[in-house]
């Protein structure tokens, strides 16, 4: 863990793990657009909410992955700032804003996660483990609609966060590939994959939020 290369590889692997999770999350969310009055979405959500493997194995791994990624990001940011205590008076670097400001987009995503947990995860934990509510497999779609329908501020906050998430993922995916030692001749394909992935995730989540805002 002391080596800068080990740190960046762990950062990359945790990032790749979270990217796979996001793909799965979006896939489930997109089922809420199926015109079956939320039946498919409710079935999958109920499975994810009550399956012991998901709840007691995958969910703790996911929470660990999220915390690890953020803490490691903050540690790396602290070390990197210490590596240049005196800043340039005039800066004109040949690199993208996104690649230089992963900590900013990351902190916005962290703030968004707090809101997202407050909106969906905390009520779910309260219902299941504190209030011991009965299994209700038809509540998820209604809850989703309730959070967004006519809720302008929340919908805007979610959409802005998704855009910043997309920017973070765009550099994150190509950077992760480099950190785990991808060869440079694959750079073109990795960049293409990063663009497709980040645009798909951002637009997918925004479409779901806007759909439930308007419909």
């Amino acid at each position: 863990m002391q080596s800068s290369i080990v740190k960046k590889v762990l950062m990359a692997l945790s990032g790749i793990f979270l990217m796979i999770f996001l793909l799965q999350h979006l896939s489930i969310n997109l089922t809420s657009l199926i015109p079956d009055n939320g039946k498919t979405f409710n079935t999958i959500s109920h499975f994810m909410g009550y399956n012991p493997l998901v709840q007691f194995v995958l969910q703790p791994i996911l929470i660990f992955g999220v915390f690890f990624h953020f803490i490691m990001g903050l540690v790396l940011e602290y070390e990197n700032r210490a590596a240049r205590k005196q800043k340039y008076v005039y800066s004109n670097t040949r690199s993208s804003w996104i690649s230089r400001n992963m900590i900013i987009t990351g902190l916005v995503i962290l703030s968004f996660l707090m809101l997202h947990f407050y909106d969906f995860w905390v009520p779910e934990i309260q219902y299941k483990y504190i209030d011991h509510g009965i299994h209700n497999s038809s509540k998820y779609f209604h809850e989703l609609q309730e959070k967004f329908h006519g809720q302008t501020l929340r919908t805007i906050l979610y959409c802005v966060s998704f855009i910043l998430l997309g920017l973070h993922l765009n550099h994150g995916l190509s950077s992760s590939a480099q950190s785990v030692g991808a060869v440079k001749k694959e750079n073109g394909r990795i960049r293409l994959l990063a663009n497709i992935y980040s645009i798909s995730i951002t637009s997918g989540f925004i479409i779901v939020a806007l759909y439930h805002y308007f419909v």
Binding site: S4, A83, T93, R94, Q178, S179
Partner: peptide, 28 residues
């Protein structure tokens, strides 16, 4: 006390000898 690489690519873009990022990937 050098910092960690975050793959911004600025090093390659400013290198007077055009040293490629491939060398960082090879180092990894």
């Amino acid at each position: 006390g050098f910092g960690n690489c975050t793959n911004t690519g600025a090093c390659e873009a400013h290198c007077p000898k055009g040293i490629s990022l491939e060398n960082i990937l090879n180092l990894n």
